[in-house]
C-alpha cells in the first residue's frame, strides 16, 4: 500500500498494531495447522493413549498430548487387513480416469468454443457451467436410478462417469478461458506456413500445456475428495478412500487411531498435488473468474 521507498518511522501505536497483527497471524496459523497436527499425531497413538486428556482447566496438561509411544500399527492394519491398497487403487483409477476423460474432451471442446462464434453459444456455455454448479445431492437421485438400469452402480466406470458430471464442465469452462488468451494469429501463421488445422491446433498446445496439466490435477483432486457420489454410486464394488475411511466409524468401539491414519492416507497425496498446482488454485477454484 504505502510505497516502500518512503521511509516510515514507527510510532508506539504503530508498533502496538504490529504486535497485535503478529499475535493474530500466529493464532490463525495455529488454528489452521492444529487439526492437521492432531490428525497426524493421533494416527500414531495406541487406542488408550488416544483417549488421554488432561483435567479441564489444567493448561499444563497439554504435554499429555505428546506423551505416547509412536506405533505404525494402524497403518499396517489398514493396508494388510483392511484392504486399503485396493481402495487407494479405486480412488486413483476413478479420480484419474475421470480427470483424463474430462481434460481430453474438455480441451477439444474448449478450443473450438474459443475459436468460433455461433448463435446460442452463450446459452451453451451457461448450460455447461450450471451443470458444474448443480448440487451433487440433487443430481444423484436420478443418476443413481439411471446407473442402476445400466448396471453401473458399484463399478469403477460408473464412478468415473459420475465424477465426469462435475469435472467435464469444469474443464471446458476453465480451458476455454485459457484458449481465449492464445491469439489466433499463431495458428494463422502456422497455417500460412502450410500446416493443416490439426497441426495448427497442436502448435499452440505447448502454450496451454502447463494450464492443462494443472487443471488435470485439480480434476483429480475434486474426484479424489468426493464422498457423496462415491458412497452412493460407488457403494459395493468401487469403494474409494474417503468412503472406506468413513466406514471405519462404528457405533461401538471406534478405532480413532485407525480412522486418523486413514485420514492421513487420504489427505497427504492431495496436499502434495495441491501445492504442485498452487499457482492455478485461485483460477481453478473460482471457475476462472479470478486470476492470480
Amino acid at each position: 500500500m504505502a510505497s516502500s521507498d518512503i521511509v516510515q518511522y514507527k510510532t508506539p501505536a504503530r508498533k502496538a498494531v504490529d504486535i497485535l497483527v503478529g499475535v493474530f497471524l500466529t493464532i490463525y496459523l495455529i488454528w489452521t495447522l492444529l487439526t492437521f497436527v492432531m490428525m497426524f499425531v493421533s494416527s500414531f497413538k495406541d487406542l488408550l493413549e488416544a483417549f488421554k486428556l488432561p483435567e479441564i482447566g489444567d493448561w499444563l496438561g497439554v504435554t499429555l498430548f505428546f506423551d505416547f509411544t509412536p506405533t505404525f500399527r494402524h497403518y499396517e492394519n489398514l493396508f494388510l487387513d483392511k484392504n486399503f491398497g485396493k481402495y487407494m487403487m479405486n480412488s486413483i483409477i476413478s479420480a484419474g480416469g475421470s480427470a483424463l476423460i474430462s481434460v481430453v474432451l474438455g480441451s477439444m471442446c474448449a478450443y473450438a468454443l474459443s475459436r468460433t462464434e455461433f448463435r446460442g453459444k452463450k446459452d451453451l456455455l451457461f448450460w455447461i457451467i450450471s451443470t458444474r454448479m448443480a448440487p451433487v445431492v440433487a443430481v444423484m437421485v436420478p443418476l443413481y436410478a439411471i446407473f442402476r438400469n445400466f448396471e453401473l452402480v458399484g463399478t469403477l466406470p460408473g464412478l468415473i462417469l459420475a465424477y465426469t458430471t462435475f469435472n467435464l464442465p469444469f474443464a471446458i469452462w476453465i480451458l476455454k478461458g485459457f484458449f481465449d488468451n492464445v491469439p489466433y494469429s499463431i495458428e494463422e501463421a502456422q497455417m500460412c506456413d502450410g500446416a493443416n488445422r490439426f497441426e495448427a491446433f497442436v502448435s499452440i498446445l505447448p502454450l496451454v500445456a502447463p494450464g492443462i496439466g494443472a487443471f488435470l490435477i485439480l480434476c483429480v483432486l475434486f474426484g479424489w475428495n468426493d464422498f457423496l457420489f462415491a458412497s452412493i454410486i460407488g457403494s459395493g464394488g468401487a469403494k474409494t478412500l474417503p468412503v472406506a475411511t468413513v466406514e471405519l466409524v462404528q457405533p461401538q468401539n471406534i478405532q480413532w487411531g485407525k480412522i486418523m491414519a486413514a485420514g492421513v492416507v487420504t489427505t497427504v497425496p492431495m496436499m502434495f498435488l495441491g501445492l504442485l498446482v498452487r499457482r492455478y488454485l485461485v483460477t481453478g477454484l473460482t471457475m476462472g473468474a479470478v486470476r492470480e
Binding site: 495447522l33 492432531m38 493421533s42 479424489w224 464422498f227 475411511t245 480412522i259 485420514g263 489427505t267 477454484l285
Partner: peptide, 20 residues
Amino acid sequence: TLFLMPMMMAPVVAGLVWYY
C-alpha cells in the same frame, strides 16, 4: 501456502477429524 492446506483435505475427512 500454509493457510491454504485445509482446502486440500477431503471435506468428509475434515468432518471426521473434527468430529473426533
